[in-house]
Computed example of a mutant assay.
Amino acid sequence: MCGGRLSLSSMLCIFSMVMLLHSVFCADSDRSQRKIVHVTEGETGEVIVQTAPGVVTTHRGGTIILPCRYHYEHSGEEPAPVRIKWSKISEPASFTDVFVALGKEMRDFGPYKNRVSLQEHDPGDASLIVRNVTLADYGRYECEVTNELEDDTGTVKLDLEGVIFPYYPRLGRYHMNFHDAQKACKQQDGILASYDQLHEAWLNGLDWCNAGWLQDGSVQYPISKPREECGKKETPIGVRNYGYRHKEDERYDAFCFTSNLNGIVGLSAK
């Protein structure tokens, strides 16, 4: 606490606490304007965040723990509360608020409301429990721990068990702009796939000539068997990339992803 007589240092301490509390619940604040200080060992009041390497995997409807631990060495008898903030990292390099806690004050945001909470098994445990996982929860998350002066971050990737499938409407190939593709995947109980998901499907043998939209607005397609009708025989195998395309004007097919299917999706090369 910032107790004692109201000296200049006490007033500055009170002011810093007020500003910290204010920042916790400003969900729409511009993250790019906030300076992030990554601390190193040996500094007073350091915060060190550790997250598990690799990915954590679940399925739609499941419960998953995004692991995050922190070590906070404070000076003084009554340290200020630590702020824990979880955000989802979107492409390109934008952040969506998921959950924030300052002491006993906690708040969840948007589609994560009533689905997320801290694990808090012991002091230093900032792991996030996510319940009733949705397709849209797939992706990378940032765990940020902040004290009065410093902070540190770690990232965790949430993956989903599922299947990639190419899709085009009855009208034929290359009739959908990006927004049409989003709607089409949703109608098929899915979402637009990410590059990582498409690449994994290619590693598992997916071969498809038609170029399709992905989640990040790029257009790509996987080739395991080069042939003339799929960009020439001499072209190397792999996920071929058309780059980021105009989301309104240009038209392609779609690569959709879904999880926890009741049936089986069959794929064949074209």
Rank of each mutant, 00 (worst) to 15 (best):
H121C: 09
T40D: 04
R245D: 09
Y72L: 06
D216V: 11
E200S: 12
P226T: 11
G217L: 11
A52W: 03
V265D: 12
G124V: 03
G45K: 01
K225W: 02
I164Q: 00
S218P: 01
G139V: 07
Q50G: 05
S9A: 03
A181L: 10
G54Q: 00
V39K: 11
S268M: 02
C2G: 14
P169Q: 06
G217C: 05
Q197A: 13
R83A: 14
N147K: 08
L203Y: 09
V145K: 00
S224D: 11
S259V: 11
H38L: 09
V82Y: 05
V49H: 01
V49R: 03
M1W: 02
S117L: 04
Q188N: 14
T235R: 12
T58C: 10
C143L: 07
H199F: 14
K88A: 12
V56Q: 08
A52F: 12
Q197P: 14
L12Y: 05
P67W: 07
K225Q: 08
G54L: 00
R170A: 05
Q197E: 14
Y138G: 03
G172V: 12
V100I: 08
K35L: 11
E248D: 10
D122K: 13
N132P: 02
T44W: 08
S94F: 10
L8K: 15
S10M: 03
S259F: 03
M19H: 11
D122A: 08
R69Q: 09
C2K: 14
T153W: 01
E200K: 00
D189E: 08
K270N: 04
S9K: 07
V265Q: 02
Y244D: 02
L6Y: 07
N210I: 01
I129M: 13
S9C: 06
A201R: 03
E234F: 11
E250N: 14
L12K: 09
K157R: 03
F15T: 06
G190P: 00
R240D: 11
L160C: 00
G110Y: 05
Q187A: 12
S90I: 13
I64K: 10
R173I: 15
S23D: 13
E46F: 01
H71C: 01
R115V: 00
P236D: 03
G263I: 03
A184Y: 09
R83K: 13
D97H: 05
P123L: 03
V116A: 03
D122I: 06
L6N: 10
H121M: 13
F255A: 07
Y174M: 12
C209D: 09
H246E: 06
L158C: 07
Y242T: 06
Q215A: 14
G162T: 06
L6G: 07
L160D: 05
E228A: 06
A101D: 13
E144T: 15
L12H: 09
G205K: 00
D216F: 02
K113H: 11
A27S: 13
A181P: 00
L160I: 06
L261V: 10
A93Q: 07
Q119M: 07
L6V: 01
E43M: 15
E91V: 05
S7C: 06
L149Y: 08
L214M: 15
V98R: 00
D196Q: 11
H22I: 05
E228N: 12
A126M: 08
V39W: 04
